[in-house]
Every structure is written in structure tokens, then in C-alpha cells.
Amino acid sequence: MAILEVRNIVKSFGGLRALQDVTLSVEKGEIRAVIGPNGAGKSTLFNVMTGLLAPDSGNVVFDGEQIIGMPPHRIIRKGIGRSFQITNIFPRMSVFENVQVALFSHHGKSRNPLHLARKFTEIGEETIAILEQVGLAGKYDMSASILSHGDQKRLEIAISLASRPKLLMLDEPTAGMSRFESRETVSLLQRISREQGLTLIFTEHDMDIVFAISEKIMVLQQGAVIADGTPAEIKANPEVRKAYLGEEITES
């Protein structure tokens, strides 16, 4: 059964058609890549799906429910987590606090103004458990701003996991990482998806990673879907090849 149905999304900015009739269907537990050259509309699509942008037309159904028109914080509560291309953490808070504050929100405790935050021991344990999952438990008391780039990305994934999403959307999860860090992150994502039945949608420019972990790949170019299929199908698709290498330029 499809957990996410994106139907005929159209979005224009001024005269520019950023998304032209984009349709996408993702099965529960699937790992799906969305790729395309710069400016293909990947980020716009993610922003529409998480309520940051309103589309001109089309709809998005998540887990049987129409989510277009909801503000981001409500869409999150429905079970869509998101990590960003530009690392998006709480820099002057500790690694622990970064995840703990997300768990407070998830458990509906954020409004509690009178109990000491550190005394929520169950949430504390859960925080440590998530940090262990992403391999940051040993750095739990460090300020997030002084982590390495790879660790910051991992922390961001941990924050997203804390809202216990059914679907996690990742915008270039390995951008700016060393080869070693990327490999670690990729296996982390695979493991989480397998263990928790989590559905993943991600964009990525590193093709090694895209082909290593995706079950299906969608290719966008100038806002339109030019291909959607298994890694093998995508590799063989001449349209995709052209999108990446550029059109043969005929003498003008």
C-alpha cells in the first residue's frame, strides 16, 4: 500500500514553472531517491510536501489523509520528518538537548513549564537511545556547534528520528561529508529503514550512494518527471543520460 501519494503537483514562481505535473507514489518501507540537475525542482517538491510552500494545484495524500494546506508543524505531527540540505540543528545547545527537545515535543511535554527538564528520566533514556542509534552518544554533552560536519548531519537525522516519523525526507544527507562519513551515514539510514520499517525519500548528488541504497529512483529535470523506476532502468534511460551530460549541441 502506498504511504505517500503525490498527485499532479504544479508550482510556479513568477513565470518559472518550478514543478510541472509531478506525480509520485511511495510504498511503505521503501527507500526512494529523487535526483536531477541543480534547479530541477527537488527542494521545491520537498517544500511542497512538508507545507513550506503551497502548490498551485495538485494534492498530497499521506497515510490516507490529504495534507496540502496544513502548516508544517501539523504535517510533522502526522508523521513526516525532514532533514535539510543546509545543516539544520540547534547550534548552541548540547547534542543531548537537541534530541531531548524534539522528544519533548513528540511526547506532548513541550508546554510543561514547571518541572525540571532533566528529571524526565524516561525521555532522557530515550534521548540516549536515539543518540546511540546514530553513534553520537559519546558526544552527548558537546555543544552541537562544535561538532564536525558529518556529526552535525547525523545529529540532524537523530532530531528527525525523535519525532518518530513514518516517512523521513532527507535533503542531500551526505553533502559535505568525507567518504568515510558518507558511508557511515548511508549504512545508518539503511539500518534504520530496515529495523523500523521507516520510509525514506532523499535527494543526493553522490550517484554511488543513490544507486547503492535506493529501491526506486525518480529523475526530475526543469520541474518535470523524466523518469521513474528501478536503478537499472534509470541507468539505461537515454533521457536521463541526456539530462546529466547535456544535450548534444547542434551547430547553430
Binding site: P37, N38, G39, Q222, G246, E247, I249, T250, S252
Partner: peptide, 10 residues
Amino acid sequence: SEGLAPLIVS
């Protein structure tokens, strides 16, 4: 050439 139509790219 990013994001430009083929004619403009040429």
C-alpha cells in the same frame, strides 16, 4: 548553462 533552454545554451 544551468536551467537555460537549449537554444539559449547554444
